[in-house]
């Protein structure tokens, strides 16, 4: 990685945020709504990328962190009538706590065992949601009422079901997480994570405590994914067990691989691209899983670095 002037990456990221802001005023209704959803899910992918891209830990269970946020926010609104900020905070707290516990257990393993362990914990989480169907709504899920999804800040109140407010809230969350990941990645801590990915033994020998560094990364990653889940529950008003299934652990992996692992903007590009591919192809075939499958195989075979990873390698070495 070559050291470039620090202003360039920040200018690029602020430019992307400004572009997304401007798009809000020109996009027609359908794509406007779709992009809001994509931004929320891109946050999920960014959280996944934190662990997979920068630390090199391939988890097959991140759906549990997303759904911890989803249910943490959704259930407190639905059953306890909490207001929006409190519910969002509850979602974050659930995700962070779960990530801490899972990290403490799963980080004892490495490689293939880590993938299987995370997948199994996610499966347990999924089955627990189904088992307590009387509270969680099981596989039918719950719909959060419109009246509960109003954000009151001082004297102003924002209705999160309004498309513009929803888009702007999604953009705000997306921007915060994007800038936070950029800052983390460029910090000393981010470089330690990359060092662990490249050679854990050597990093350990140089005196870094790799276990606690990895544990912090798991918690940060889990919390970002939970933020995405909590925002999804509050913005789109649906909480269901399908978000905890194995498929939602695979999707962020696909998005990150496609966009480019260990690039800050890769998750957004991957999510955007995949969402539109499925959206367009579902017009003439219902077999979208086939496309997901073929995309996964082609990616690992020919583009292991993803779209942005390839661009960075060929042309733009300074891309964070």
């Amino acid at each position: 990685m070559t050291e470039a002037s620090p202003t360039k990456p920040y200018a690029l990221h602020l430019g992307v945020i400004a572009l997304l802001f401007a798009l809000s005023f020109v996009l027609p209704g359908y794509h406007h709504g779709l992009l809001a959803r994509i931004m929320v899910l891109a946050v999920f992918a960014m959280g996944y990328n934190m662990l997979f891209g920068y630390v090199g830990l391939l988890s097959l269970g991140h759906a549990m962190f997303f759904s911890a946020g989803l249910y943490g926010a959704g259930l407190t609104v639905y059953h306890l009538g909490w207001n929006v900020p409190a519910a969002f905070a509850a979602g974050l707290a659930c995700g962070a706590l779960l990530a801490l516990v899972i990290g403490l257990l799963a980080l004892r393993t490495t490689g293939v065992a880590f993938m299987i362990v995370t997948m199994m914990f996610a499966q347990v989480f999924y089955l627990v949601i189904l088992y307590f169907a009387s509270w969680t709504g099981g596989d039918q899920g719950l719909v959060v009422q419109q009246a509960a999804r109003v954000l009151v800040l001082g004297s102003a109140s924002f209705d999160l079901t309004n498309p513009t407010v929803r888009y702007m809230s999604a953009l705000a969350l997306f921007s915060i997480v994007l800038l936070v990941t950029l800052a983390i990645v460029r910090s000393r801590y981010g470089r330690v994570l990359v060092a662990i990915r490249e050679n854990e033994e050597r990093t350990k020998m140089l005196g870094y405590d790799t276990f606690s560094n990895k544990l912090i990364a798991v918690v940060v990653s889990g919390t970002i994914c939970a933020a995405s889940g909590a925002a999804y529950a509050l913005l789109f008003g649906y909480v269901g067990s399908s978000f905890a299934s194995v498929q939602y652990s695979i999707l962020p992996l696909l998005w990150v691989l496609l966009g480019g692992a260990a690039t800050t903007l890769g998750p957004l590009i991957g999510t955007l691209f995949m969402y539109y591919v499925i959206d367009i192809t579902s017009g003439f075939t219902s077999a979208y899983l086939l496309i997901v499958g073929i995309a996964l195989i082609l990616l690992v075979l020919f583009f292991p670095k993803g779209i942005l990873g390839t661009i960075r390698q060929r042309w733009l070495g300074w891309l964070p």
Binding site: L60, L257, L289, V292, L296, I297, V300, L301
Partner: peptide, 12 residues
Amino acid sequence: ATIVATIGMLYI
């Protein structure tokens, strides 16, 4: 890489 590829095969 093979885990990702076999996930792809599963879906196909």
